[in-house]
Design a protein around this nucleic acid. Structure first.
Lengths: 203, 203, 203, 203
DNA sequence: CATGAATGAGTATTCATTCAT
DNA sequence: TATGAATGAATACTCATTCAT
């Protein structure tokens, strides 16, 4: 809405659009980094404007509210994760269990830089609760599909509980991407264990 | 530090000391509850004063800064967890592996109410970073001792990595104490799996 | 509410109350003058604080909102006018028609300094509509009573219309208190004419 | 001043010129309506631009300042009233006193819709004070001429004072055009009384 | 020592105005 | 010349902290 996406002809108008696009990117990037560093409340709009090289008035032209900005950021993170998890689910059958577990953890880790801001935003009490749920649901949904692929015999309720547990593992992995190799190895081992014993081995 | 008021037993003077103690308790209690409810930044000193029945001026006599108050709270949480984990480590040998895993998860869950505020504070970027590390170290230390009791053959480095992983499981469990019974069951199963396969079964 | 009026004992607490009272007076005075000079929207809270020698934070302690401040000012003006009009109505019978007309205009003129701010506030689109009506009703009510005293034979509907017209004359007089003596004389003459021909001479 | 675009009739070029004229009309119309609805300060230049279908940049080409725009609007209102009052003065001799009084009040009432914005602007302290006086002078001048026609024997000073008083009646009538029929009737009666007793009957 | 009124720097947000396209 | 994105000073309001009583 505030992001102007409909592409016009090409020549004269395009630069304006492109510039706007870049500006939005810069803002979201700066905001993401700052939120990850300091938490939602501690970051000021002025700070975001400065870090993204935007005038405060322009910042407000794109995002009329701090909360709207946070929402946009969260929505973008959600889109990312949705597409990535869909791909993961698609591959679930083709991969061995352990390979899937590794891919799963790799995914969580790879996404981690972005994820930091997403986690902060999801935890922030001040941010619209709706977003939070949608985000969690998106993640859970992707995981549930992957689990269904791995063990189709699992009843829905059990699959849901396992998806939820897997989600927690995902969350941990993402939140601790900076750990030492040994700890990350334990993380992977944990994912493998869980998938082998608690997902594939039941029903 | 600035709150320590060692109780004397002189009848006349005592009440003042005792009252001071109670006051500090009330403040920390109110602050903990409020932080857990609203997050660190959203809570105002005035609110804490009101909820604890303290005059704002008195609140500042005990805790000259919002951050110092948060630190005190965190330190107290750390003390709690340290003594409890020490007890857990002490029992480690006496319990079966699975019993230990269950006790471990139970601990995390039981402590959850307090933990909420502690998590909020640890996550809050505005709060002194030092505390965070001390808190994590306290938890890690307790777990490392427990692991050492369970499998004394593990080299120190491996034990540390496993303690770290166990800590993450602890964190997950505590942060998700409100989950459904099924999910909590998965949590317990995960803890058992981890201890059995990754801790006891190695070295 | 925000004005702290309940008198406590006398000694220790009194000064605090008195100071608070003075502060409120200073604020309302400054606000009234500024509103009269520049209009409601053009006046800033910072300006009011500066002119009344109050810190901005203190200003907000007493009046949490610009609108609440305007309301308080309006209420006070309303109280003034209510008591004064009540007195006028009480005297209506004892005075000759012309003497009453003169007293009426004198009232409007004498009150004029305060009135300027009141008029501005009543006209201001941004100020709570409720106040506006209450203010007008208070004035109208006082005038209706005076008219009833002057000519008890007038049916209620007619009396109301005349009260409304008288109110408009009052408004004009007050809003133009700075005019030349000749113009004010015309004003008085107009009031006399109206009362004699349109109020006393009917029914 | 900066808005004058005299229309040429050269076919090809004309549209642009005409459009400029229409544009100015549209802007002033939108501004008048908005000012009347919301008051001077509350209306934004962007709003005026939008309501008049003008780009904000073009709006500023015609009226480099919000205040200049208000001035232009006021000047136009003044022109209206000047020509209308001139006509009224011209008719003064041909009409009976009462007929003149009625025509006078009718004028005030009929003009009311436009007047709303004019009143708002005149009252707005933020708008150039000069305009205000010019506006009042224009009105006063027209009334003085009418009075001179009605009663040529009146000395200039007295005529001026009466013109001023008549102006106040005009102002009231215009400002209260929405009143009930009864109140408007009182208004007319007041005008008749004033003209008969205070204008025609003196000197 | 306790109290709570007073302080003012800091925050999100608006809007008149400018200027590159 | 027309356009509307960009600018930043200004505004209402909050809250950690101080200090007179």
């Amino acid at each position: 809405m505030q992001v102007e996406t409909q592409e016009k002809r090409a020549e004269g108008a395009a630069p304006k659009q492109i510039r706007g696009h870049l500006r939005v990117e810069a803002i979201l990037g700066a905001a993401g980094a700052l939120f990850a560093e300091q938490g939602y409340d501690a970051v000021t709009m002025t700070e975001i404007a400065a870090r993204s090289g935007t005038a405060i008035g322009s910042l407000y032209r794109f995002f009329p509210t701090k909360e709207i900005l946070a929402d946009a950021l969260l929505r973008r993170y959600r889109d990312h994760i949705e597409t990535e998890l869909a791909a993961l689910a698609r591959d679930a059958q083709a991969l061995s269990l352990d390979a899937f577990a590794d891919a799963f953890v790799d995914h969580a880790l790879a996404w981690a830089p972005d994820r930091a801001a997403a986690l902060v935003l999801i935890e922030a009490r001040s941010v619209g609760a709706g977003q939070r749920e949608q985000f969690r649901d998106a993640l859970r949904e992707g995981l549930a599909q992957a689990i269904a692929r791995i063990n189709p015999r699992l009843p829905a309720a059990a699959a849901a509980a396992k998806a939820r547990a897997l989600q927690l593992i995902f969350k941990i992995a993402a939140a601790n991407a900076g750990e030492s190799a040994e700890v990350l190895a334990e993380m992977r081992a944990l994912a493998r264990l869980f998938l082998r014993e608690r997902v594939a081995g039941e029903g």
